[in-house]
Each structure stands twice: as structure tokens, then as C-alpha cells.
Amino acid sequence: MKTAGQSGRVEGRAAPPRLRIAARVTAAVFGAYGFAWGLAAFGAELGALAGMAPAEAVTASSLLALVVLPAASLWAFAVPRITVGWAVLGGGGVLLIAASQFAGKFAGIVGP
């Protein structure tokens, strides 16, 4: 892995092992997507609870999630410790999805 060594030199750190790179790449791809998914789902539920038309809430939250997605992807490479990155992106994604499920149940009880 000459490349990793090289970019490692540029970054002024020791050569990052393959595992760390794999952790960052998967965080950037799957972690960020999961986070965006959670944001879109939770945002849609929240919007619907706040009285937006469902199609409006879905569109608005999806657009927001799309703006967040590339930023979250890059952040997975910028964060000093990738464990923190995974905790925020993965954990945040799971939390948001759970919250959206909860909000959906709540809306089911309160709503018609």
C-alpha cells in the first residue's frame, strides 16, 4: 500500500493501516447514508406531526438529508478518531431511525 503510506506522509501521521482506511471509507459510504436516512425519516415524521402535508414533509426532509449526506461523508475523513466518526454517524443514524419509528407510532396513536 504505497498510496496509504504516501498520503500518510502528507498528513504527517504514521501510515494508516488498511483497517483504519476501511473503517473511514465504510463510515463515509454506509455511515453517512444511514445518518442521512435517519434524518430524512425523522424529518418526514416530524414534519407530518407539525401539520405539513405528507408529500411536502417527505420532500423537505429528503432535500435536507441530501445536503447533509456529502458533508457527513467528508466529515468521516476529517474527524481525528474514526471511532468517534462511527459513533456519531452510525449511532446518530440508528437513534434518528428509532426516533422516527417512535414518532410514527405516536402519530398513529394521536392522529386519525
Partner: peptide, 10 residues
Amino acid sequence: VLPAGVQALY
């Protein structure tokens, strides 16, 4: 490609 909202509300 990001059907999260559609999953949630539809």
C-alpha cells in the same frame, strides 16, 4: 435513492 421519508409516511 433515499426513500427514507417514503418508507416512513407512505
